[in-house]
Design a protein around this nucleic acid. Structure first.
Lengths: 155, 155
DNA sequence: CAGAGGATTCAGTTGTTTGTGAATAGAGTA
DNA sequence: TACTCTATTCACAAACAACTGAATCCTCTG
């Protein structure tokens, strides 16, 4: 199981996430009730409380985890929000629209759409525009698929 | 135009590419005939020949650029392969299938699909499986769209 | 309000990228 | 073969990222 955490974490890191953040997600995915304290996380991953604090702050900022505290306790309990994680993954992919704008802006910089460079940029813009469009469909599609799954397996 | 190169390059870097590699792509996109020598690239981006060599070696390895040499010359001319760049971008996205396998493998590690953690992993696997499937469709879709574009604007 | 458990912040350490300069190798010309 | 122009390689430096340890802050209990 430790193997899964490190392997999967490494893959997420390769996809651009900070290392410890990736490992925390992998860890919490494997935790039975998905609820963990900072101390538990630190022990499991062999990192200092300071490092855990930083990672959790990041995760909390994006809503990947929520933070709870039992009345009469001083320790925070973090709860993994699987759906939020998925949503953010999709939104990140949707940022491709950004590229389209940048490339389109570049067309003027190289002398307009009737220059060789302009044509090349327009072609690449077309590529990213296509992807962005498909991404939008994908997001809608997942929303629907998720509903179907929920009907069969109510959370 | 220098602004476009740096801005767009930074975006590619944020997407996980090495910095200089990103800048070279942005630069070559804006070059009129898309053909440049190492010296031109080094001058434009203010980096050493050594750095250019490293970046071009990477780009050539993935087929992002081809390397030509005029008979009787000692300098290589690099030519940006826009389509290859697009294709590799898509293939990279298709690597999501890898995640599905890892997660599926993790289900056993946490005690099978009937444990809480197993169910959570299965759900995430379902998410990535969905995306991987849509990515396959997207790749096919772009192939087709590209053909259409080519009919109207023969390269 | 004092004390203790726990979270957070920050300066400093370690490790990883990214790029440079100098030396080396390749390829063409004479 | 000797000479020159480029490309490549490699050891090192600078910039950046990821952690740690110690100090600080917050919050609950007595």
């Amino acid at each position: 199981m430790a193997a899964f955490i490190e392997t999967f974490g490494a893959t997420l890191t390769a996809a651009g996430m900070q290392r410890l953040v990736s490992r925390v997600i992998a860890l919490m995915l494997t935790d039975d009730d998905g609820r963990m304290t900072a101390a538990e996380i630190g022990t499991a991953l062999r990192v200092s409380p300071a490092a855990v604090s930083g990672a959790m702050s990041f995760l909390h900022g994006y809503g990947f985890v929520t933070k709870e505290r039992q009345p009469g306790s001083r320790r925070d309990v973090y709860v993994l929000q699987t759906d939020t994680w998925h949503d953010v993954t999709l939104q990140k992919a949707a940022m491709i629209g950004h590229l389209v704008d940048q490339i389109t802006g570049g067309i003027d910089a190289v002398g307009g759409p009737d220059t060789p460079a302009g044509r090349r940029l327009a072609y690449s813009a077309e590529f990213y525009r296509f992807i962005a469009g498909e991404m939008d469909k994908l997001i809608t599609g997942w929303d629907q698929r998720r509903s179907e799954l929920r009907q069969r397996h109510p959370a």
